[in-house]
């Protein structure tokens, strides 16, 4: 079996944004649509300060909340761990965006939610994800953790890392700050079950209306509280 994962070392990240742009170019995204972001954290009192920059993207969760709420199965998880979106099936209800604990999805100009795909198609052709290959500081390692000889398996075996619980992502703990600056474990937000209940029994025709009502009302507090975007 193949199980893809990524390991990110925020201690090496200088916040240059090459990962973000390389990804945008790889997938011909328009300038405002991007799949990975950098969260800057500065702590301390002058002149004893620390800065850590944490790259965050789709965590390719084991049981993706975005998949759970998707009424048309447009979002799906492959056996190799990659979470993808079939845009032909997507009805643009945006449940997945509300459900994502990592704020990892963004709408393209056609109103389709999009996100990091671990460069799945590109990897299938022997490439490595654009964010990985472009990085000046080798912040990211990508590969198959079921293959003990892969670069990522060897790295995980020989370095102290933390797995973001319930996801395909590993991080090297920040040296200068505690690990609370890393993305949280994948916990299905409470509102996801509500969305799921609404989503599953109804037909596509009335979903748009239902989505607006439910998302607008139920989700507000939870998602606001969970937003850790420091850009």
């Amino acid at each position: 079996m193949t199980k893809y994962a990524m390991c990110i070392d925020p201690n090496k990240c200088i916040g240059c944004n090459a990962c973000r742009i390389a990804c945008q170019m790889q997938w011909s995204l328009s300038p405002a649509v991007y799949f990975n972001r950098l969260e800057e954290h500065v702590e301390g009192e002058y002149p004893k300060l620390s800065r850590v920059i944490v790259p965050v993207q789709c965590q390719h969760c084991d049981q993706p909340p975005c998949e759970k709420v998707c009424p048309t199965k447009a979002t799906y998880k492959r056996e190799d761990g990659v979470v993808l979106i079939d845009s032909d099936k997507c009805i643009k209800c945006k449940y997945c965006m509300a459900a994502c604990p990592y704020n990892a999805r963004v709408l393209n100009e056609d109103g389709l939610p999009q996100k990091c795909s671990f460069c799945a198609d590109y990897v299938a052709k022997g490439g490595i994800p654009a964010c990985v290959s472009t990085c000046m500081c080798k912040v990211r390692i990508f590969g198959d953790i079921d293959d003990p000889g892969s670069e990522i398996s060897e790295y995980l075996a020989s370095h102290q890392t933390v797995r973001i619980q319930g996801t395909s992502m590993y991080y090297v703990p920040p040296v200068k700050m505690d690990s609370s600056v890393l993305p949280p474990a994948c916990v299905t937000p409470i509102h996801v079950n509500v969305l799921k209940d609404v989503a599953q029994p109804v037909s596509k025709g009335i979903l748009g209306l239902a989505a607006a009502a439910v998302v607008g009302g139920v989700v507000l507090n939870n998602a606001k509280g969970g937003d850790k975007n420091h850009e």
Binding site: S28, S30, P31, I85, S87, N108, E109, D110, Q114
Partner: peptide
Amino acid sequence: ISGFGTLTKAAPPSS
């Protein structure tokens, strides 16, 4: 959605 006019039309990642 602000449409900045790059000539490279956005394609979904799966295509």
